[in-house]
Design a protein around this nucleic acid. Structure first.
Lengths: 231, 231
DNA sequence: TCATTATTCAATCAACTACTTGAATATATG
DNA sequence: CATATATTCAAGTAGTTGATTGAATAATGA
């Protein structure tokens, strides 16, 4: 009897300890700022300063958030001269973040509300899915356009894609054949680079579409990717 | 120029709002208590009182945690007479929780440390994987034993299994043929019911093994399941 | 209707979190 | 070796969150 009581206590302690450990991951994921950092790191490795400026945080604050992500083993860091370069710890982290995001999209009405509020024009632009793009690539004449900053293209891109960062697109329009269908993609469903690209292309008479997802989702689905600069 | 500044501000607001929404899920997952509740709900629907007593919480405290999980749309509730019965909101939640747990196991050294501290004997008991069990079921004479409480068996179990709750196992030993190999399973890798069952069975001369994972993992993997009482 | 029971709400206090600031550390360069 | 730059650390403050109570609210069944 006494034995049982003790054993009960031990089991409770075990469960408390165990779930408290798992909760560390939850705590790391419980801040919008940190999720934004993960989303940025899903594109490529970045220094603290780059992250701070992209996420509109002070460097010290950003560094602190990164320490929290690191304590939960969600990101890893390497030293490169003067810089600390952060990246997602591994593919499992990307998978967790994507399924986390997917759950939010599917179940939190507020997410769709926020997206609709800010991205009103999104509906008008027909988006095509990864599978549809694969199908088109086999049969049609399609140009796949990566409009992210060039470093992100270099860190990894859809195998068939060519890079024209959104900031350069207007100047470099003549590189794109008028005859082809254009499919533009960027960082993911909450990035507006591809929206802007499609808008610009259509204004200039192209037949352009947005890819529904971005590069991380494509990669996670196991579809063909490549790294390095444009050949 | 003014335009651009405004647009920058709007984009920032959008990202802040969006990621803050996703962070609601992280917040819900940031307490060990709540994760334990999810783990329990992964087995079956439960009333507030059942959950409170299994997780060693006061009913009021438990209810509060459930409200938080519900606000993040991770659990759903239905009214059944005097009781509010809670369940996981859908399969995606189970998937998120399992990939969350998997990440913790793989990356947080403390998780393995806690498991090793409390479940020292675990190593001695060879565990067999889902795939190994499938293979054995085809060729060998195996009894698959569900040692969870009977209500959990009724709510869903491995198709080939028979139910003997761990609390009844000693009395009902004679129901199990001595010749067969026994594979016992329970709620999951952190549940000790199957460990206890294997210990007891071996003491009585059976050849018994623990299934590495529990029922939720089996189901998530798309392997054959059944519901309802024993036929 | 009233008594019973399960659940939720509200208020408290303690504990924690985010962000800021300024100093400290680490690395590279002249 | 001194200087510049990138990052981290430490301390302080304001604001928020969590656990715990006891009271209030539903829903049922007599």
């Amino acid at each position: 009897m006494n034995n049982e009581v003790i054993s009960q206590g031990v089991k409770r302690q075990f469960k408390d300890d165990l779930f408290e450990q798992f909760a560390r991951i939850g705590k790391a994921l419980s801040s919008g700022r940190r999720l934004e950092l993960l989303e940025l790191l899903a594109q490529r490795e970045r220094s603290v300063e780059e992250l701070a400026s992209e996420a509109a945080l002070s460097v010290a604050n950003c560094s602190q958030h990164l320490q929290i992500l690191r304590a939960a083993q969600l990101v890893a860091v390497r030293r490169d001269g003067l810089f600390s370069r952060y990246r997602l710890a591994d593919e499992q982290v990307l998978r967790l973040w994507l399924s986390f995001r997917q759950l939010g999209e599917a179940r939190l009405a507020e997410v769709s509300r926020v997206v609709e509020t800010y991205l009103k024009d999104r509906r008008a632009l027909e988006a095509i899915t990864n599978d549809q793009l694969i199908a088109r690539l086999r049969t049609n004449d399609v140009v796949v356009l990566d409009v992210r900053p060039e470093e992100e293209f270099r860190a990894g891109h859809i195998a068939a894609a060519r890079s024209i960062p959104i900031t350069m697109l207007e100047q470099r329009l003549k590189e794109i054949p008028q005859r082809s269908t254009i499919v533009a993609y960027c960082r993911g469903p909450y990035c507006v680079f591809a929206d802007d690209a499609v808008g610009l292309l259509r204004k200039h008479g192209y037949q352009a579409y947005r890819l529904q997802n971005g590069f991380p989702e494509w990669k996670m689905q196991g579809l063909p990717t490549a790294t390095g600069a444009q050949s």
